[in-house]
Design a protein around this nucleic acid. Structure first.
Length: 561
RNA sequence: GCGGUCGUAGCUCAAUUGGAUAGAGCAACAGGCUACGAACUUGUAGGUUGGGGGUUCGAGUCCCUCCGACCGCGCCA
């Protein structure tokens, strides 16, 4: 516990600094159980980092927070390590504000230059996460709302991996229910209409134009074969044909959107493999099922659901909920924690899925995130979207109109639980003002400086790559940029913990802003060797972290634009 | 009717889960390039956080109640 002389005079990490302040607090108020955590100070005038620990101690210490903060600072500064790390300590309105030594921030830059793409990575947590998102009926193209779900899910997955979680990403193909019959009959009708435009379309079919190409593909494969087959006889095989084609298209769009899945799980395949029997059997063993009116029910009201849910119908067929029973049983066996990202029309499922986790004896192991609704506008016109009515804006439409980078950045930029209005006309018209270009421009701008340095400052560039001369970073703009670099790891950890991927885009924008301000205030390439080397190092570090943040968002980091 | 989510600047959204003077972008106005990319930057203006009440050192955040928007409420999927 007693540090050596060399350690006493050397810089502390932020965690170590918090620990020293915690020890100081405990020495003053042993019964207070203080937990010290430093976060960026609210305003730059206050300092670099701050803690609100004094507020938590106020009751036990029977003192005003400001007096506690003052006494705490005084005690903590008795520690040589604290004195070596802290340049100024100011208690203000109960907060302990610290300005750290430039060497502290110079070390951050050195760390980035050493760790590069691995910078900000969290230690493996050992926790296995199953993350499901995007899952859709294979009855039509992916629509714009699914773009939001895909963006959020993919970025969350990447951020959680970076933070140290073991994440398995899956999509379930909802191909086991009666909507496949409707799909088959719809495509059959479209097929007949290719020969006879007056052929009637089924009442409960999917009327969208998007099934016409499917019918054409069917004709290309089978010619006139189906003209002589009754709808009821033709529907099953045509449904399989359409399902395969549509799923392949969905996979294609997801891939173009930069989203990678570990598993595309067919619900029908689960059924065929007996997953429902296994899941139901397990629930039966656990004694949470009961029979009523000839059907099999799960007692979800025991966990706060509005009513109990039928799992197996009177006629022996499983319900839609039985799919969840089966699939979540599978997922719970290969994961410690299951996260489902669902659309806004599914929030009624939260209670029954929580109840399902309870029933399996895994309370809290199933977590549901709801991606809220998107209202689409094109200028003043609000687009009402209904797959039934057939007027859909597809994800591919959005990609074509604004590009993958802008679409993905925009969709993760907004917090998951916030309904949003997306103006397509605005997104297109102002694409140059889109925040994503602001961040990408920062990256390209650095790349440009580095390209120039290759010719004019080759030695300094090589030294910068090795992290030399960083002690020359002392300007406020330089240190502010380094401060922002230091926030990357905590930001990623926060994204993972709070399931809040939109903080990542916020971070990328803040980092780009700090860089642009630095670039405006400090010329990088000069005839001052130390300064040039240090600033090139800072540029390389910033470029690295910008690229990492953009990569987690699924957005390209261009060398030029 | 019951239940859920939400309501923040003219517009689109933040606010690290109860902490400091509620912050950004766009739009508006006024400045900054004979040196590395001006797709940048500096400043000004813009707010009773839908209304009201409560909890406490402290509330955009928690509890109650109204108002409003959206979504659920089937042995459909």
């Amino acid at each position: 516990m007693s540090p050596t002389t060399t350690e006493e005079s050397s810089l502390l990490s932020l965690d170590a600094l918090a620990a020293r302040f915690g020890a100081a607090a405990r020495s003053l108020w042993p019964e207070g159980e203080p937990v010290v955590q430093f976060e960026p100070a609210r305003r730059v005038e206050f300092g670099d980092v701050a803690t609100n620990v004094a507020f938590g101690l106020a009751r036990v210490a029977r003192m005003k927070p400001q007096d506690i903060a003052t006494a705490l600072v005084e005690r903590a500064l008795e520690d040589p390590g604290v004195r070596a790390t802290v340049a100024a300590a100011t208690p203000l309105a109960g907060f302990v504000n610290l300005t750290l030594q430039p060497a502290f921030w110079q070390r951050v830059v050195a760390t980035v230059l050493r760790e590069r793409e691995a910078y900000g990575r969290g230690a493996p947590t050992g926790e296995r996460i199953s993350l499901e998102f995007g899952s859709a009926n294979p009855t039509g193209p992916l629509v714009v709302v699914q773009g939001r779900t895909l963006s959020i899910g993919d970025t969350l997955a990447k951020a959680m991996r970076h933070a140290g979680y073991d994440v398995f990403v899956e999509w379930i193909i909802n191909d086991a229910g009666s909507q496949l019959d409707a799909l088959g009959r719809s495509v059959y009708a479209r097929y007949r209409q290719l020969f006879d435009p007056a052929y009637p379309f089924p009442e409960d079919g999917y009327p969208g134009e998007y099934l016409v190409p499917v019918a054409q593909a069917l004709r290309a494969r089978d010619g006139e074969h189906w003209l002589g087959v009754e709808p009821d006889d033709a529907a099953p095989e045509i449904a399989r044909f359409a399902r395969d084609l549509i799923v392949a298209e969905q996979q294609d769009v997801a891939r173009r959107f930069g989203v990678v899945y570990d598993l595309w799980q067919s619900e029908k395949a689960l059924h065929d493999a007996g997953a429902i029997e296994r899941g139901v059997e397990r629930l039966r063993e656990l004694g949470v099922l009961y029979e009523k009116d000839g059907a099999l029910w799960l007692r979800t009201t025991a966990s706060g659901d509005d009513e109990d849910r039928v799992v197996i119908r009177t006629d022996g067929r499983p319900t839609y909920f039985a799919n969840d029973v089966a699939y979540h049983y599978e997922k719970l066996q290969r994961a410690d924690h299951v996260i489902d990202i669902l659309g806004p029309d599914h929030h009624g499922y939260i209670a029954r899925l929580n109840a399902l986790a309870d029933a399996y004896g895994r309370t809290g192991a199933i977590e549901v995130l709801i991606a809220q609704q998107i209202t689409l506008k094109r200028g003043d016109e609000t687009l009402s979207m209904s797959k039934r009515a057939g007027n859909v804006v597809t994800l591919q439409d959005v990609i074509d109109e604004v590009g993958v980078d802008a679409a993905r950045f925009f969709f993760v930029m907004l917090s998951t639980d916030q309904p949003l209005t997306f103006d397509l006309a605005l997104a297109k018209k102002q694409s140059n003002d889109n925040p994503v270009f602001y961040v990408q421009y920062g990256h390209a701008r650095i790349a440009s400086v580095l390209r120039r340095a290759v010719a004019s400052h080759a030695d300094a560039l090589a030294a910068a790559e090795r992290g030399e001369r960083l002690d020359a970073l002392t300007e406020p703009a330089e240190l502010a940029l380094a401060r922002q670099l230091a926030e990357f790891g905590p930001t990623v950890a926060g994204v993972a913990r709070a399931r809040a991927p939109h903080r990542l885009t916020k971070y990328a924008r803040d980092l780009a802003t700090e860089f642009h301000q630095f670039y405006d205030a400090c010329r990088v390439l000069t005839d001052d060797d130390a300064s040039t080397t240090a600033r090139l190092g800072l540029c390389i570090a910033t470029k690295t972290v910008l690229a990492s943040a953009l990569a987690l968002c699924g957005v390209a980091a261009p060398e030029s634009m």
